[in-house]
């Protein structure tokens, strides 16, 4: 471990209110610890921020997957293992369950949380494109109160978000119909190997059609193609109201390419990412059931 542990202190609030109180009272920025699967890597690499850490793991208020009215509400501490095991998620929001199954490996899935993936804000986070594709809202909580932010407005730049220093992620709220079984959907992860690989490209698509066959709902969300996970709104707009045919697949692919800006890094190249992003989209479109 590169970090000098002497520079760190860990506190364990017993309740959510206690945690919010500590956040409100602190002058320095506190580090929130959930499953630790990102933070411990930073600690080991010597790049974690020293100072006070708050361990959220014991806060039951941040756990659980529930149907509340016409929403699915997920506590921030929901783990990937819980997502995979949940009947509700597998049935109503299958892309989330599929994404969860590709994260790290079993040990990471047992510990890693949805809230941690969102707050960590890596452009390659695997749960993030499905959350975008499902119109998720992030429930932020502080001693000042609770507010919901649409997930596609959550990030303000590379690993930066609208969350204030005294706010934590309490829950994620998703409309029940977002993953309706009448809509076609797909999760795609391209990595170097089967497990424990950060995505070269990750994507989630949802597409619905009206009785006449024209597209009346479309979400296309990508990770690892821009500084944050992104929804390709121009692409979505482009296909709305049209019938899926080879021409649309071609023209929409061009729109897609104009809307992403991947980079070269150690995992892959910008060219390759552009190419497979387009391929993933084309294949999804070609294979939409009932075509």
């Amino acid at each position: 471990m590169r970090a000098r542990l002497a520079g760190f202190s860990l506190e364990r609030p017993g309740t959510l209110d206690e945690a919010l109180g500590m956040l409100a009272a602190s002058k320095e920025r506190l580090t929130l610890l959930a499953g630790g699967t990102d933070l411990y890597v930073y600690l080991n690499a010597g790049v974690a921020r020293p100072g006070r850490w708050l361990d959220l793991w014991g806060l039951d208020e941040l756990r659980g997957i529930h149907e509340v009215g016409d929403h699915v509400v997920l506590g921030a501490l929901t783990t990937y293992t819980e997502l995979r095991a949940s009947e509700l998620i597998r049935g109503a929001l299958p892309l989330l369950a599929q994404a969860a199954a590709t994260v790290g490996a079993v040990a990471i899935q047992n510990r890693g949380t949805l809230g941690g993936n969102i707050a960590n804000g890596s452009p390659a986070g695997d749960s993030l494109p499905p959350l975008l594709a499902y119109d998720a809202e992030i429930g932020l909580r502080s001693a000042r109160g609770r507010r919901f932010v649409p997930f596609d407005r959550f990030y303000t730049g590379y690993r930066a978000s609208v969350a204030a220093p005294d706010e934590l992620i309490e829950q994620i709220r998703i409309p029940l119909g977002a993953g309706s079984s009448s809509r076609a959907c797909r999760f795609v992860k391209v990595g170097t190997r089967a497990a424990q690989a950060i995505s070269k490209v990750v994507a989630a698509f949802v597409l619905g059609r009206a009785g006449d066959g024209t597209v009346d709902h479309c979400r296309a969300a990508f990770g690892s193609v821009a500084p944050t996970p992104v929804r390709l709104r121009r692409l979505e707009q482009h296909v709305i109201g049209k019938r899926i045919d080879p021409a649309l697949i071609r023209t929409s692919s061009d729109v897609l390419l104009s809307e992403i800006a991947p980079i070269d890094d150690i995992r892959s190249t910008a060219r390759y990412r552009r190419f497979v992003a387009r391929t993933a989209w084309q294949r999804f479109m070609e294979e939409v059931p009932g075509l």
Partner: peptide, 8 residues
């Protein structure tokens, strides 16, 4: 540096 494991 990724090496293949049993899942691969």
């Amino acid at each position: 540096y990724k090496i293949f494991n049993t899942q691969d």
